[in-house]
């Protein structure tokens, strides 16, 4: 008899399952936060889980020359194929169960993709997976750059950040002039079939991600979680501060933490006012070392607007029938 899947809410760090399904021995950076996302989602989902990984840091680092740290079955898929792989796996399991080839039971299907694979290239595949009624979870682990191929800018890179595509220069200080996409909000607004959508940070608030994964897996349909992963490599900070950076992202309000459970939106962490100035979060990263006060002010003003002017603060930028498009 297969082990039952537990979806109970975890209350406190002492209650977090001790068993690892993503084990030691992966070629990730010192202090890698995306490795924490892998570790935490597999802890929450347990042994009856199939993980699907698109190309990116968490594919290459975890299959270093014919070795793996995964305990649960894991499969690599193409850069933009996170959604299709989740959909195909989930549909395959349902078909096998209907035909009686495998026993009827709940098997978690979790696909994860990086910000380039998920928010840029794989967006259409994710969109189509979220239109179905299949039971699947897609996790977008977002470290705001294509860090696997040496830190190129993506659609998720914060405005002003230095990457290998957007190096600062003597004539032009800011090369990353695009604002980060609002992927979770976009997917929530456009996919009536999606059962659960959330944003999370693996380290803050503690256990939050584990419980969001459990909620997503028990939602009974397609689900999507967007995590912000501080990246010591591309963000250029000391690896010991990954937890601190995650906390500052939440407290400063630059990354709103919320969930949309069967169509009802709720902030899961409301940064206490006055919010921590975003400068405190940005100045701790080498990729923003070239920013001047006016740049910090600009980012602060956009973040403030997200919390004060948006129809649903931090989630949907619509008001009075117009979509806000700030300059």
């Amino acid at each position: 008899m297969a082990e039952e899947i537990v979806f109970e809410k975890i209350k406190g760090i002492h209650k977090v399952p001790r068993e690892e399904f993503y084990s030691s021995g992966h070629r990730t950076c010192e202090g890698c936060e995306s490795a924490m996302v892998m570790r935490m989602f597999s802890k929450a989902s347990g042994p009856r889980t199939i993980a699907l990984g698109t190309t990116g840091c968490m594919y290459v680092a975890n299959t270093a020359y014919m070795t793996t740290p995964w305990v649960i079955p894991w499969m690599h898929t193409q850069l933009g194929a996170g959604g299709s792989a989740a959909l195909g796996t989930s549909a395959g399991l349902r078909a096998l169960m209907k035909k009686g080839k495998i026993p009827e039971e709940k098997i978690n299907t979790i696909a994860f993709c990086g910000d380039l694979g998920g928010a840029d290239m794989g967006l259409s595949a994710i969109s189509s997976a979220l239109q179905t009624d299949y039971d699947l979870l897609i996790i977008l682990y977002d470290n705001e750059s294509a860090a696997n191929t040496d830190i190129q800018a993506t659609g998720m890179t914060t405005w002003g950040a230095q990457t290998t595509f957007t190096p600062t220069g003597k004539v032009k200080r800011i090369m990353q002039t695009r604002w980060k996409k609002n992927v979770a909000g976009m997917l929530a607004a456009g996919h009536p079939n999606v059962k659960y959508i959330a944003t999370a940070i693996a380290s803050f608030p503690p256990i939050d991600l584990l419980n969001k994964v459990r909620k997503a897996l028990s939602a009974g349909g397609p689900a999507f979680i967007h995590t912000l992963d501080p990246c010591p490599k591309g963000w250029d900070y000391h690896p010991r501060y990954s937890d601190k950076l995650g906390e500052l992202a939440a407290r400063s309000g630059i990354f709103p933490l919320y969930e949309i459970d069967h169509g009802t939106a709720k902030l899961t962490y409301n940064p206490p006012k006055p919010r921590v100035p975003v400068k405190e979060y940005l100045e701790k990263q080498g990729r923003f070392a070239h920013l001047k006060d006016e740049d910090f002010q600009y980012i602060q003003q956009r973040v403030d607007s997200m919390w004060e002017d948006w129809e649903i603060p931090g989630i949907i930028p619509v008001r009075n029938g117009t979509i806000r498009s700030e300059k």
Binding site: R27, A64, Y65, T68, P69
Partner: peptide, 18 residues
């Protein structure tokens, strides 16, 4: 690639030289 047994670790890549 063979997965890690439950309770085990990736024996082929101990990475303490990092």
């Amino acid at each position: 690639v063979k997965s890690v047994a439950r309770g085990g670790r990736n024996e082929d890549y101990k990475r303490f030289t990092t």
